[in-house]
């Protein structure tokens, strides 16, 4: 991890400006996408806390997302809770479960940690797949959105809902950034860099990792609750390991450990998927619209290119670029 992170806040500011501009410019569908991006960004940032900051590569993170989504769906549909209370419940359930899972998982490192998180994520999937109360593999619909009618706002309107999601994503980002820069976050970073040394210095490494794992799970639960509100629908696919994999791709694409990179990665991911799978996009490039059928291939090629050419992700490259420009500037100044 770099000593200083001079572009974190400027990039975050730039993303915020883009988001606001997009919100004003977007139509009905664009705002739906914006809400999706904001929620995915929250999920990706929660995984970045584990992967990029604390150095725990989890392939079961979607399990906590699904848990949050199902907790919200269950609490609102079966018990008639208001969505805001259900959201708090989702965060609590996902956080508590993550702590329980973490008790075992953080004892392991490297590939064993990946395997156990993968297995546990798949257990959530298998459970929801067979849970007939939640509709089994067909999923369950009917999750309502926040009721903001006392404020005169209708959350069924994508403009209102997407704005709300962007605000929440921004708040999660600020909270996570403060956390990462706090002494607690410094310890996590140090553990990531050299776990053995920290342990020999007397640091309770596992407790720190457990806390990070629980917190990451709780935020994933928050993303899940918002996702259930956004789509009005939950299904076992939310827990499937490929979604954990997608989140991991987003974190790596954006630049692991940079938080704002994960958020930007989520935006790039959703926009790419939307454009590449749309025949009219390819026709606009004067290519055959049939390429859209093979959009996943194009996306795969893009990810390969990113991993080969920008191993530290988009944020890492940007950071490198800024560094180069600065030192060139300073070099010239020094010579004069």
């Amino acid at each position: 991890m770099r000593e200083r992170d001079p572009i974190q806040l400027p990039v975050a500011g730039l993303l915020a400006v883009i988001a606001v501009a997009a919100w004003f410019g977007a139509g009905y569908f664009g705002q739906e996408l914006l809400a999706e991006i904001a929620i995915l960004a929250i999920f990706a940032m929660s995984l970045d806390l584990l992967v990029g900051v604390a150095g725990m590569v989890s392939l079961g993170h979607a399990g906590f997302l699904a848990l949050g989504a199902y907790a919200t769906a269950g609490a609102t549909v079966f018990w008639g809770w208001p969505p805001a209370a259900a959201l708090a419940f989702s965060v609590a359930v996902a956080g508590a479960c993550a702590l329980g899972v973490g008790l075992f998982a953080v004892r392991l490192g490297g590939v064993f940690f990946i395997m156990i998180t993968l297995a546990i994520g798949q257990m959530f999937y298998a459970y929801f797949f067979k849970a007939r109360a939640f509709g089994g593999d067909n999923g369950m619909s009917g999750t309502p959105r926040f009721d903001l009618s006392p404020l005169g706002l209708e959350t069924g309107d994508p403009a209102v809902f997407s704005a709300l999601m962007l605000v929440i994503a921004g708040a999660v980002y600020v909270a996570l950034l403060l956390l990462v820069r706090s002494p607690f976050g410094m310890m996590l970073t140090a553990i990531h860099q050299n776990e053995n040394r920290l342990a020999s210095l007397g640091c309770p490494v596992r407790r720190y990792k457990l806390a990070a794992f629980g917190l990451g799970g709780a935020i994933a639960g928050l993303a899940g609750a918002l996702m259930a509100q956004h789509t009005g629908f939950v299904s076992p696919d939310l827990a499937f390991w490929t979604l954990s994999g997608e989140a991991l791709i987003i974190v790596i694409l954006g630049g692991s450990g940079s938080l704002v990179g994960a958020a930007g990665g989520a935006a790039v991911f959703v926009m790419l998927r939307d454009h590449l799978s749309d025949g009219s996009f390819w026709e606009g490039l004067r290519l055959s619209g049939d390429i859209a059928t093979h959009w996943q291939l194009v996306m795969g090629l893009f990810f390969i290119a990113v991993v080969l050419l920008a191993r530290d992700g988009l944020y890492g490259r940007l950071s490198w670029l800024v560094d180069r420009v600065r030192s060139a500037w300073r070099g010239r100044g020094g010579g004069a």
Binding site: F29, E32, E36, T231, S235, D278, T293
Partner: peptide
């Protein structure tokens, strides 16, 4: 055409794209 990828969330996103 719109690809659902046989996945509920992708299917819903594609449905919204088609309609809106």
């Amino acid at each position: 055409p719109a690809d659902t990828e046989s996945k509920p969330n992708s299917g819903l996103a594609q449905f919204k794209k088609l309609v809106f």
